[in-house]
Structures are given as structure tokens and as C-alpha cells.
């Protein structure tokens, strides 16, 4: 066992983990932050995407110990403390960008990374291209693309 400390959604957390513990396990099992999901075991599906020091990463392909001292944001950390949704969360609801909801946290966290890298004015081609690391089996992506385009614009306001 080793001790790991990091900041998760603005709070300092510490836990004892085996070195083989993945970040996603640490979040889900130690911290009970179950919004970060696991949809595959080959780093393809993106259901586990979180922000590691502000940058999107797959929590299933990151060891908890690699995050010593890091700042992590998960889907649970996006809304404001008073419960006001992040514009990207709001856009996913408004544009029906989710059905079963399982890929959704990863989609939203990845969408924010697309905005970070490409700005607030996103065209359809860019969004589709940059969603390469996330799989959705329900929506056919049509409404996810619309949601991200609108969410990105709303974030600029």
C-alpha cells in the first residue's frame, strides 16, 4: 500500500492504495465519486474521462499514484456549489445529448477539453473529429454534436 494525495473537485483528498490502483478506481471506490464510468478496458470509450491538471485524460489509463499532487476535476465538480449547472451540462440537457447517460460524463468532460483546445466557435467537423476518444452507443452523436456546439458558445457568454 502507498499513500496518495491529490485535489479532487477542489478538495484535498488522501487515500491508501495499491500501486496498481487506477485513478478511476480511486475516484469510484475510495472517494465514491461514481459519475466517472468504465466502459472498456482498452482506453477506447472515454466514459472515464476526467480533467487532470485541467487537461482531459482517461482515468482508466492513469494510475492513482501518477496523480500525486495533481488537481483532478470530475463530472461531479462541474456544477457550481449552489447547484447551477455548467453551460456544457445545460447544453447536453437542452439538446438531448444523452440517452442512457453512461457515456455522458466522459462526453461532457471531453467536450470541455475540445473547447479548451479549439475555442468557443466550433464547427461540426471539428467536434466530430475531436470526439474520437469517446464512444456513445445510444445517440448516433447527432445531438451530442449539437450540444457541444451550443455549450461551447454558451461558455463564452
Amino acid at each position: 500500500m502507498a499513500t496518495v494525495s491529490m485535489t479532487v473537485n477542489g478538495k484535498a483528498v488522501t487515500g491508501d492504495v495499491e500501486p496498481r490502483t487506477l485513478l478511476v478506481q480511486f475516484l469510484r471506490e475510495n472517494l465514491r465519486l461514481t459519475g466517472t464510468h468504465v466502459g472498456c478496458d482498452t482506453s477506447q470509450c472515454g466514459a472515464c474521462v476526467i480533467h487532470l491538471d485541467g487537461i482531459a485524460a482517461k482515468a482508466c489509463t492513469t494510475l492513482a499514484l501518477q496523480c500525486e499532487g495533481a488537481s483532478i476535476t470530475t463530472i461531479e465538480g462541474l456544477a457550481e456549489p449552489d447547484g447551477k449547472l455548467h453551460p456544457m451540462q445545460e447544453a447536453f440537457r437542452e439538446h438531448h445529448g444523452l440517452q442512457c447517460g453512461y457515456c455522458t460524463p466522459g462526453m461532457i468532460m471531453s467536450a470541455l477539453d475540445i473547447v479548451r483546445r479549439n475555442g468557443n466557435n466550433l464547427d461540426e467537423h471539428t467536434i466530430r473529429d475531436q470526439l474520437d476518444g469517446n464512444i456513445c452507443r445510444c445517440t448516433g452523436y447527432h445531438n451530442i454534436v449539437k450540444a457541444i456546439e451550443a455549450g461551447a458558445k454558451a461558455m463564452a457568454k
Binding site: 482506453s43 472515454g46 474521462v49 487537461i55 482531459a56 485524460a57 482517461k58 489509463t61 492513469t62 471531453s110 477539453d113 475540445i114 483546445r117 475531436q130 474520437d132 476518444g133 469517446n134
Partner: peptide
Amino acid sequence: VGDPQVRNR
């Protein structure tokens, strides 16, 4: 390479 998240890491 891979996808955006892979490229980030």
C-alpha cells in the same frame, strides 16, 4: 495519434 485524450498523455 490515437485520440485527443491519448494525445494529452
